[in-house]
Every structure is written in structure tokens, then in C-alpha cells.
Amino acid sequence: MPTNVSNLPPVRRWVPAPVTKEDIDWADLTFVDLAKAKTPEGRAEQVRLARDATHRQGFFYVINHGLDKAIVDRMIDIAALAFDDVSEEEKIRYRARIKETGEYLGYKLPQYWHIANGVKDRIEHYNFPRDVSRREHPNVLRPFLPEVQRIVEFTHRGVLNEVQKLLSLGLELPENTLPDLHPFDETNHSFWRFMLYNPRSQEEEDKTDNVWMKGHADHTSFTAIWSQPVTALQIKDWDGQWRYVRHVENALVVNCGDTTEYLSGGYYKSAVHRVIKPPSDQDGYRRLGLYYFHYMADDVRIAPLLDSPVVQREGVNKFIVGVPPVQETWRKNRASTYGVTQLERAEDGTEYEVVNGVRVTHYN
């Protein structure tokens, strides 16, 4: 991707929140360095780091990926336009038909997901298809679509496919095993998201114990999150404790999703995470971020990679009762039901629903 942003359409600057100075219980996450992975010795080290991090926590940072910070900062500026410079009428026009289609494309408006005790979310997002030309977009975003398309492709191919090569080798399979299941072509329905968390009233904070989004695991193969400074993301760590994810300038936070856990027979762990109210010195700031949700090709079945010696040694947990669904069925059913169905309560206090024969747990 080009690093010169001076010849691009002008955009108003987003002023980020200051980094918190509070004493925080940070998660100890691994750094996967894509620059070091370019030499044989460094590649062997990064395979081990990516494998162990995904097996233990399902979360890790990716650094030295090759994208200039100025481009990421500019994309945040563009993201703000989607929420601050689009009228409510136009947002409704481009509203995603999530329950009807099983896809998030377009706006998810606030007050859609139930959080707790009658309180619904204060989260907005605008979602682009992997190929941004597949649909029409709000007027204010149209001059920036070529830039969005470039960062989508970079995140898919330049980051996640490269990480998947390391994780394929971690399963003792050919390095292109996982990337080949996640092509950047018309069979793939990965999507890009601008997401904005708006502050809430104290009454809503009290009713939800400060939880902005319930603990959950993503139904994707992976999610890539461009790090931003508002401290609110927590992971359910390897020891069962909730810990915060620290902001690292120009890094990506990559989390393993359910699909990769199923492909690896449970060896790679789907990362449970949630979003809660930020610390007091960031109170009142809006949390704006860039996300990429990574799927396999639509016709691939979500079944364990039984050729992997690691999967064979570690035992296979098939997770899914009956015939595994193909990616298209899985992604649409999970998207259409999340946050809007009646959940059952388990003995341990968690809530759950059954989708495609899989028990999907929600942590409140």
C-alpha cells in the first residue's frame, strides 16, 4: 500500500483519547513479528510463538506488518465520517438486514443487541463487503472507497493469510493449508467494519455491571483489530480471569474464532472476549475502531483438519453434532441470531444458544 497520504481526498482529523494512566491488570499477550518471519530462523521462532499463543490464549499482537501508521490513522479519520457525517435518514437507508440475510453489510444501529436487564447496546457500526464495490455506500464515504479496498486486501492477504501460514506450520501442515481455505476472491465473504462505542448513562452502567458487550467468541476464523487507545477490550485469559488488552501503537490484535478452533480439533482456542466501560480517565470518550472479520470460502465445511499430526496427537473435538455446516450456512446463522435470541441459562451462570448443532456460550 502507498504511504503518501498528501495527494488523497481531505478528511477531518479524529482526535483519539489519551492513553490511560490507571493501574491496569493487562493480559500478557504474545507479539508475532511478520518481519522476523521472513528468514528461516525467524520463521521457525514466529511459528512457535503464533502456535503457542493461539493454543493458550487465542489472542496475540501482530507487529512489523508493513503498513504505515499514517494510513491507519487516516482510516480512523474516514471511519468517523460514517457516524458523524451521515444523517439518521441515510443510515436507515443503508441499514443492514442482519436477521433477514445473516449478513452485517451496512449499518448496525444502536439498541439492537440485548446486554442485560432490559438494556440494549449503544454500539454503531458500518460494514463493508470484502469487495467494497459489491454494494452502494453513503455519499460521504464514496471518495474513500479505493483506500478502504486497499486496507481490506492488505489485512486479508498481508496480515491474516501470513499469520495463517505460521499457524498451518504450527499444525505440521503445508503452510498454505489455512490461506487456501481463505482466498481473497468472490467465494469469500469476509468483511470490514468501522465500529463506534458510545458512552452510556450511569443507570445503564449499573444495570449491566459496566458491560458494553457480553463475553463471547467470534464465529469467524479470525478477527483482526487495529489497536486503538480506549481501554475497554478484555479477554478471558488462560486462567479464567478477565484482563485488559493494552493499546500498542500501529499493531493489530488478532483473535482466533470458533471456525479455527473447529478446524484444529480444539488445539487452537477460540478467544472469549468482552467490552466494558473504560477506566475513569477515559470516561466519556467514544471508542472508534477498525476491524476485519475473516471467513473461509463459502463452500468449505467446518470440519477438523485430520491430516494434521498435531490434531491426531492432541485428539479431535468435533464440536458440531451431525454433518458439519459449510461456511456460508454457519456465518449467516450465527450473524442472524447473535444478541437477539432468547438464551438459556447454564448452571455456571453463563447463557447459551444452540446454532447448527453447536452450543454457543455468552458470558455476562
Rank of each mutant, 00 (worst) to 15 (best):
N188T: 15
V86Y: 01
I235P: 00
E45I: 08
R134M: 11
T3A: 12
E203I: 02
Q342H: 05
I115R: 03
V62L: 07
D218M: 03
H182T: 13
H125V: 05
K120I: 10
V159E: 04
E205M: 01
F144H: 13
D85I: 05
P324N: 05
P183T: 12
R313W: 02
S227V: 04
K332I: 05
P174D: 12
G289C: 10
I302M: 13
T54M: 02
L109V: 10
R200P: 00
S6V: 12
V132M: 00
T30M: 14
N176S: 15
V253F: 02
D206L: 09
G106R: 00
P324A: 06
F31T: 15
V132Y: 01
A116N: 13
Y61F: 12
L67N: 00
K207V: 04
L306D: 13
P2M: 13
V159H: 02
F222P: 02
Y112V: 09
G289F: 05
V152W: 01
D258W: 00
R301K: 13
D239Y: 10
G106S: 04
D73A: 07
F59M: 12
L305P: 04
D281M: 02
R287N: 03
V245A: 13
R287P: 01
S336T: 07
S168Y: 06
H182R: 01
Y94A: 12
M296L: 11
T223K: 02
T260K: 03
E351I: 00
I24C: 09
W26Q: 04
T220R: 01
E124H: 08
V11A: 06
Q234R: 11
S190Y: 03
P16Y: 07
Y338C: 01
Y292F: 15
V86Q: 01
T30H: 05
R51D: 12
Y197F: 15
V245C: 15
P146L: 14
P309E: 14
S270L: 06
Y285D: 04
G357V: 08
D28T: 08
P229C: 13
Q241R: 15
Y352N: 03
E100H: 10
R12I: 08
V119H: 01
W113A: 11
E204H: 08
R334P: 00
K91G: 08
S201F: 04
N64Y: 08
N255P: 05
D239M: 08
T231N: 05
A79L: 06
Y126V: 15
R13Y: 09
